[in-house]
């Protein structure tokens, strides 16, 4: 591709040092497209090579004004195009001006890079990391650049303290249930264990599901945008129960491609998650109740594999959660929030 008749005299490319062994994850590079990108964690060194390859056929020699490499962490608000916010910017100069007559590689290393946020591609905002290599050229000659996006996962650790969500909700004289999720904070490989107890059933329930809702909030003040999106539905009951039935819940968060909860990222945006319990009756009326949960990403010693058998022994939903009896959480009695409605949707 040449603007000025000669085209680009050389290609530049970035090789990260452990790219063959480093884990890759699928990540949205645009709204539609996912690519397997290399995964980095906070504090990891980013090192590699920048290769400059001459176009052999017609180029004998390439002059440049210097070569540099940058690592950028950037938040981009789609509603405010062009206004990006770099929360991370590191530069390294690899070479001064010189003439290249043959291909050449330059090593680089950013030691212990602080990557304070998780990569994110949402509706109105994205947060991304990339390495950029630039071969600078003189006037009227465009720089030769190359970008390599990578993904950052934020790992957290929370003590395994049971902090169940338990609530009694209902619509007077019609439907009255108590739901219980074993925690309010889940790491992404975890399963939500819980149960729904039907205390009063005077409507004919057709089915019940749990939706995982992602709420993305960007900007502040007048330019405050909120986007809510269901990222997965999970049917937990088929048919209508009688009074007294207790329906178990086991929802593997892995089945949804959720990401950790992000709050006030660089004061630019937040991403929060909600469990929406929805009951649909035979007349297609929907009854629902949303509960926020915090998602986090857990650090594993050996991250190739999640611990085995977590799906059975320790988390059997025998109606009780682990230690539940010992630590009975206060019931958040939210009956006041009842909404009875003929409308197709009715929130508890």
């Amino acid at each position: 591709m040449s603007f000025f008749g000669f085209g680009r005299p050389a290609d530049v490319s970035i090789r990260l040092s452990d790219e063959s062994t480093r884990r890759r994850v699928l990540h949205n590079v645009s709204d539609r497209k996912k690519e397997p990108l290399l995964l980095y964690y906070d504090g990891e060194t980013i090192a590699g090579m920048v290769d400059v390859n001459l176009k052999k056929s017609n180029v004998k020699k390439v002059d440049h004004k210097g070569i540099r490499v940058e690592v950028t962490g950037q938040i981009e608000l789609f509603n405010d195009r062009g206004n990006t916010h770099d929360f991370l910017f590191l530069v390294k100069h690899l070479a001064g001006p010189e003439s290249l007559t043959s291909d050449r590689s330059y090593e680089f290393e950013f030691p212990n890079v602080e990557k304070p946020h998780e990569s994110y591609h949402g509706t109105n905002v994205r947060l991304r990391y990339f390495v950029k290599a630039t071969v600078m050229r003189g006037m009227a000659q465009p720089n030769i650049t190359q970008e390599l996006e990578f993904v950052v996962h934020m790992l957290s650790a929370y003590p395994n303290v049971p902090n169940p969500l338990k609530m009694e909700v209902g619509i007077e004289d019609s439907l009255h249930i108590e739901f219980e999720y074993n925690k309010s904070r889940y790491h992404l490989d975890e399963a939500i264990i819980g149960k729904i107890s039907f205390i009063l059933v005077r409507v004919k329930i057709k089915h019940m599901e749990i939706d995982l809702i992602r709420r993305e909030q960007t900007g502040s003040g007048p330019s405050n945008y909120m986007e809510q999106e269901s990222i997965g539905k999970y049917e937990i009951m088929d048919g209508g129960p009688a009074k007294g039935e207790v329906i178990p819940i086991r929802l593997f968060l892995k089945s949804f491609q959720g990401q950790p909860t992000m709050k006030e990222v660089a004061k630019k945006f937040s991403v929060r998650y909600f469990l929406n319990l929805v009951l649909v009756d035979e007349e297609d009326r929907r009854y629902f109740k949303q509960q926020e949960i915090t998602l986090w990403r857990k650090a594993y010693l050996n991250e190739n594999r999640i611990p085995t058998n977590q799906f059975i022994s320790s988390q059997l939903p025998n109606g009780n959660f682990v230690n539940e009896k010992a630590e009975q959480p206060p019931v958040d009695d939210d009956k006041s929030a009842l909404v009875a409605s003929e409308a197709p949707e009715a929130a508890f």
Binding site: M237, G240, I312
Partner: peptide
């Protein structure tokens, strides 16, 4: 060795189907 746990789990989880015929 998992028999009891798995069967328990299946019997319990099947509660999710409350439709009489399907259940």
């Amino acid at each position: 060795e998992l028999t009891k746990a798995v069967l328990d789990d299946l019997v319990e989880m099947s509660r999710g189907v409350q439709h009489p015929l399907r259940g």
